[in-house]
């Protein structure tokens, strides 16, 4: 089976600094895939390359057998950026309505979808507030709601649960699992190990290299360690020796 998403020899340089160094990834359809790595390892950069917001210096990205960037595929992708890119003068509902129209969701269905996603991120009671008056975590949840709005086939979430309390975080992960069962492919970046453990497959990123790939269990087993954290340190060491 050819994979849903494939990255071939991706490199990315800003001026003279190379931040992504020859990354190959293959992500099957329907997987919950985690990109795990410390701050500055290149997670955001890699994710932006996947959706086409950054052009790789070298290499290609294919999604569903099409080369990225592709406007047709954009319609199928839900993206949650690391920094909340929302219109702070507008209310949550107006923000959602705007994105719903951009994705061409018919008027009738918009209302229903807005209620559905608001429920997932637990913002139903705050839809009429302008985002200026939202807390950091509420904005984070809003960003996730926007990403889910048009029921994309592929979800790309850049550190989705930063600043969200443990209870809601658990419920969001449950919802992600549910979406996955409905056939959605999900890519999540994180530097939190217990979140990484919930992924089907992981790529460990460090300084722009993928230092290890596999399911959390495989990674722990192969490195002869007890926890993902130890495994991560282990693979880091091998690469640097």
């Amino acid at each position: 089976m050819s994979s849903f998403i494939s990255l071939n020899g991706i490199q990315k340089s800003f001026k003279d600094e190379t931040v992504i160094k020859n990354v190959d990834l293959a992500i099957p359809r329907g997987q919950l895939f985690g990109l795990l790595g410390p701050s500055g390892s290149g997670k955001t950069t890699l994710v932006k390359i996947i959706i086409g917001l950054l052009n790789p210096t070298k290499g290609t990205v294919h999604i569903d057998n099409q080369t990225m960037p592709s406007l047709k595929l954009m319609q199928e992708i839900g993206y949650m950026a690391q920094s909340d890119a929302l219109y702070s003068e507008l209310t949550a509902k107006e923000n959602l309505q705007f994105f719903a129209s951009i994705y061409g969701i018919p008027k009738k269905k918009q209302k229903q979808r807005i209620q559905e996603v608001a429920k997932i991120v637990d913002l139903t009671d705050h839809l009429d507030k302008t985002l200026e008056h939202y807390s950091g975590g509420m904005k984070r949840r809003m960003s996730l709601a926007v990403a889910l709005l048009h029921q994309p086939k592929l979800l790309i979430l850049d550190e989705p649960t930063v600043g969200i309390d443990p209870v809601l975080r658990a419920s969001i992960w449950q919802d992600l699992k549910k979406l996955q069962q409905q056939g959605t492919t999900i890519i999540v970046t994180t530097h939190v190990m217990d979140e990484a453990e919930k992924c089907d497959n992981l790529a460990m990123l460090r300084d722009g290299y993928v230092i290890a790939q596999g399911s959390p269990e495989q990674l722990i087993e192969k490195s002869n360690t007890e926890t993902l954290e130890e495994a991560f340190l282990h693979y880091g060491k091998i690469t640097y020796e």
Binding site: L53, L71, K72, Q75, I77, Y79, A81, S83, A85, Y87
Partner: peptide, 14 residues
């Protein structure tokens, strides 16, 4: 600067 331009470029908008 607030990233909304980049955000809407991650949609099918031309």
């Amino acid at each position: 600067t607030q990233g909304t331009l980049e955000r809407i470029l991650a949609t099918p908008l031309r």
